[in-house]
């Protein structure tokens, strides 16, 4: 079974999903457009400083005749290098309507801080 799956996947084109990265006070938010990828097919791996996201679209319904095709089955894959200020332990991800949102919180030591000035 796993061999067959591998073959099917090998045929799919690999795309890098369109990605937004926002900087916020609390850290970074990453948004990736991955339409057609069900939650079960999404994999996020963190290896040292590389965060790899990959997902394969669900199989199209069989028995239909395609008249026009402008998108199709594919594999999305994207690697993001994390800066040292991201707290690896608190990375969170959720998916809604085909958009994957990854939250990369700043490590406490790197949160913006105002420095008090004392008069001596």
């Amino acid at each position: 079974m796993s061999d067959i799956r591998k073959k099917e996947n090998a045929k799919l084109p690999v795309y890098r999903p369109a990605t937004d990265i926002m900087e916020e006070e609390k850290g970074f938010s990453v948004y990736m457009d991955m339409p057609g990828v069900p939650k079960e097919n999404l994999v996020i791996d963190l290896e040292e400083n590389e965060l790899t996201v990959s997902g394969t679209t669900a199989q199209a319904a069989a028995g239909e005749q395609l008249a026009e095709q402008q998108f199709g089955g594919c594999e999305y894959r994207q690697t993001i290098s994390l800066s040292d200020i991201v707290d690896r332990e608190r990375i969170a991800a959720k998916v809604q309507d085909g958009v994957l949102e990854i939250t990369l919180p700043r490590a406490a030591a790197h949160e913006p801080k105002r420095i008090e000035i004392t008069q001596g």
Binding site: Y15, P35, E64, L66, A67, E68, Q69, Q70, F71, G72
Partner: peptide, 30 residues
């Protein structure tokens, strides 16, 4: 990437049909 070579509108569409229905699918994430 998407749409290489061919000008396309947004969202990308797939049109298909079987004996009973016509299906229009569009990629509109988010």
């Amino acid at each position: 990437g998407y749409g290489s070579g061919k000008a396309m509108g947004y969202p990308p569409l797939n049109l298909s049909n079987d004996e009973e229905n016509v299906y229009v699918r569009a990629e509109i994430p988010g």
